[in-house]
């Protein structure tokens, strides 16, 4: 059996399936590995970055500087690319509700926060302009809540109120955690349990979630990585940094 980290990396890679020639942007170790794994296997047209300012043309291991630069993507070009919709980001969230409204800004009231977090960063612009997936390393009722304290990324309910253009661009393909994969492929776009990782039950996931998940028939198990995928992941993360994010 493969490790949880490898299952999660493959689930992250799968989020980019079918994206074609766009910027697959991963924030953090596992999302970045997911994007690089997708490009190295089934989605070769993706563009991936070094996390700084360059598109890299080779299968660059995490932590390595031995890169082939195939493009320049300073922050201004990132904004241009994302406002133009040629991007799929996978980012984190400290809170998320059933419609995918996410929060990385603040816990408690904005005027008088209990915990000041990062700020909304690019969340509002990302979610209103292109596909945004999430990686959450610790699935819990602290993260998956009835109502987020500040909306940094738009969920389906808020996006649908903004009109036809926004509805067309807004998409939250996957939520990947250490327990399961979720999506919003339900009638009212509330969060659906897509698959559970090996050894995890549907009840485990539901009890770690602060709202009712949509359960659509039999929930399958998140696929185990293939031998080829494991080889690629080892190549892209020889130091095993992925195991520090999920265990």
């Amino acid at each position: 059996m493969s490790s949880l980290a490898d299952v999660v990396v493959c689930a992250a890679a799968d989020a980019f399936r079918g994206d074609g020639e766009i910027f697959a942007s991963g924030m953090g170790t596992i999302p970045m590995l997911g994007a690089r794994t997708a490009r190295a296997t089934f989605e070769p047209d993706l563009l991936v970055s070094d996390g700084e300012a360059f598109f890299i043309g080779n299968d660059l291991p995490l932590g390595s500087d031995d890169k082939i630069v195939e493009g320049w993507i300073p922050f201004r070009s990132v904004f241009d690319t994302l406002w133009g919709g040629r991007r799929h980001v996978m980012m984190g969230a400290s809170q998320m509700d059933r419609f995918g409204n996410s929060n990385i800004a603040v816990i408690g009231p904005f005027a008088n926060p209990k915990a000041q977090l990062l700020g909304v960063r690019g969340g509002p612009g990302n979610t209103i302009n292109h596909a945004t997936s999430f990686f959450i390393p610790k699935h819990s009722t602290k993260v998956f809540v009835e109502s987020v304290d500040m909306v940094s990324g738009l969920g389906y309910d808020r996006a649908s109120r903004l009109g036809e253009v926004v509805r067309r661009h807004h998409r939250l393909p996957r939520i990947i955690t250490n327990m399961a994969v979720m999506d919003f492929e339900s009638a009212d776009h509330s969060m659906r349990l897509r698959s559970v990782h090996p050894g995890i039950s549907v009840a485990d996931v539901q009890s770690a979630t602060g709202f009712e998940l949509v359960i659509d028939g039999d929930v399958r198990e998140t696929p185990q990585p293939t031998a080829e995928e494991i080889e690629v992941i080892e190549l892209l993360d020889p130091r095993g940094l992925r195991h520090r994010e999920v265990a």
């Binding site: 612009g125 990324g153 903004l162």
Partner: peptide, 13 residues
């Protein structure tokens, strides 16, 4: 003008 920020907490606060 932009879409970035519409419908988000940025408008709320």
């Amino acid at each position: 003008p932009t879409r970035a920020g519409l419908g988000s907490g940025v408008m709320d606060v």
